Simulated scan of single mutants.
Amino acid sequence: MSVRYPRPMLRRCLLIAASAAAALALAACGKKDDAPAGAASAPQAGGAASGAAPLKVAFAYVGPVGDGGWTFAHDNARKKLEQTFGSRIQTSFVEKVPEAADAERVFRDLVQQGNTLVFGTTFGYMAPMLKVAADSPQVRFEHATGYKQAANLRSYDARTYEGAYMAGVVAGAMTKTGTLGVVGSIPIPEVIRNINSFTLGAQSSNPKVTVKVVWVNEWFNPPQETNAAQTLINAGADVLMQNTDSSAVLQTAEKNGKYAFGWDSDMSSYGPKAHLGSAVIDWSPYYIASVQAALDGSWSAGPGKHSWWGVKEGAIDLVSLNAAVPAEVKARVDQVKAGLKDGSFVIWKGPIAGQDGKEVLARDKVADDAFLQNIRFYVKGVEGQVPAGK
Rank of each mutant, 00 (worst) to 15 (best):
V106E: 08
K390W: 14
W219Q: 00
I281H: 03
G124P: 00
A150V: 06
I16S: 05
P207R: 04
G381M: 03
Q44S: 15
G47A: 10
K330Y: 04
G339S: 09
N322P: 00
Q149P: 03
V62G: 11
A77P: 14
E142D: 09
Y147Q: 15
P189Q: 03
S265H: 10
Q83M: 06
D245Q: 01
D334M: 01
A73G: 02
G114E: 11
V386W: 15
F119E: 06
P43E: 12
V97R: 07
M241D: 07
A353K: 15
K312D: 04
S41K: 14
M129D: 14
P8K: 02
I375S: 03
W70N: 05
L200K: 05
K305A: 15
G184N: 14
K176C: 14
A127Y: 14
V139M: 12
P387E: 11
K358T: 07
V3R: 03
D282R: 09
A164N: 12
P54S: 09
P187H: 03
A39F: 13
V346A: 10
S320V: 11
S298N: 02
A293Y: 08
L200R: 06
A202T: 08
K176E: 14
Q90I: 12
V336D: 03
M241T: 00
P285S: 09
F377R: 07
L15I: 06
M129P: 00
I352A: 13
V214K: 12
A228T: 03
R88V: 13
S298T: 15
A362L: 12
E190Y: 14
L240T: 02
G271L: 07
A20R: 15
A327E: 11
A289D: 05
A362D: 15
V325P: 03
K337T: 10
P387Y: 08
Q224C: 01
S300C: 02
F377M: 14
S205H: 04
G357V: 06
Q203D: 04
I352L: 13
G146I: 13
M126D: 08
R88D: 07
Y270E: 15
V97G: 04
P223A: 00
R11C: 01
D75Q: 11
R159P: 02
L15E: 06
T175G: 04
A20H: 12
Q112P: 00
T116H: 12
W263G: 07
V336T: 04
M174R: 03
G69I: 01
Q385V: 05
G304F: 00
I192S: 06
A301G: 13
P8I: 00
A23Y: 05
V211R: 09
W215I: 00
G310W: 07
P187N: 01
M9Y: 04
T179C: 09
Q149L: 12
P8Y: 04
R12K: 05
L295A: 06
L232D: 06
G146E: 08
F59R: 15
I89W: 07
G343K: 01
S247T: 11
I233N: 02
S185N: 02
Y165N: 04
A274S: 14
A294K: 05
Y259T: 01
T160G: 15
H275Q: 08
N322K: 11
A134Q: 13
H143F: 03
W309M: 11
Q355V: 05
L200M: 06
S136D: 07
P98D: 01
N322A: 10
K349H: 09
V280D: 10
L15N: 12
N206R: 01
P98F: 02
Q242R: 00
V249K: 00
V169A: 07
C29S: 09
